[in-house]
Amino acid sequence: MSILVNKDTRLLVQGITGNEGSFHTRRCREYGTQVVAGVTPGKGGSDFDGIPVFNTVAEAVRAAKPNASIIFVPAPFAADAILEAADAGIPLIVCITDGIPTRDMVIVLHFLKGSGTRLVGPNCPGLISPGKCKVGIMPADIHLSGSVGVISRSGTLTYEAVSQLTTLGIGQSTCVGIGGDPLIGTSFVDGLRLFEADPETQAVVLIGEIGGTAEQEAAEFIQESMSKPVIAFVVGKAAPPGRRMGHAGAIISGSSGTARSKMAALAAAGASIVESPADIGLVTQKVLQALNNQRGG
């Protein structure tokens, strides 16, 4: 198993004919993801590499029965695209778009509450269940199918972590990039809960960063509800306070936003802390060895 995406995922691409949308549609498809429809207003009735394109998500849903959507729509229109997909009843929306205004996200997230739709992102690389399905923009070949879940606020740092795991022969059940914005649809806690319930996932690698309190909330959940080991790294020890480090959400304001306080909270909750970003794979390997010894003995 895996979480959120697998062989049964039927993907809709919103913004399929744009530059990024078309590039990544092809990559996802090459990986084996079933891409069943695309939406670009004004291009309904045409096709993209044989994939039917519709004017609206509602039409695409009626005709092609997608159960997930990935969004490559430019920032000024992305919130509207999320709402359109949610209104059409799509249960999983992955929004890659970076730069959506916060005020728009407040409305979107409010609309999604209780709607039965899960949003991953925005400003994220998407997710991949290695060997099964890719709904995102990550390089596919660094992944290996296995039993470690990966959840992260970052993009390329996730690739770095995954690559370290794969190099050591440690495969992944699903890798989820939850996004670097201050307001996101799927939190660390949501992801951890899904991994905890997934029988195939043995352990989870969590990669946090400065800003906000998402890591502290994750720590609370780990303490109270996780039976599986969590390996945690928080990036940004060297980041100065008050400066936004690339991601809209990566800014230290107040003591809870620092890497140190986040790591301390995760350590106190029983997570195995990775001190150096070069050691994410090694620490995970040790945790898995200890886990297997425990089970063996």
Binding site: G155, L157, E160, I207, V235, A238, M245, S276
Partner: peptide
């Protein structure tokens, strides 16, 4: 010079851990 904000911060952290200081993000 790094691609991606998270990896850029990780690079800074690594430099600092080695006892040096990054000139920039």
């Amino acid at each position: 010079m790094v691609n991606g904000a998270g990896l850029a911060m990780a690079t800074m952290d690594m430099i600092q851990a080695m006892g040096a200081q990054p000139a920039n993000f």
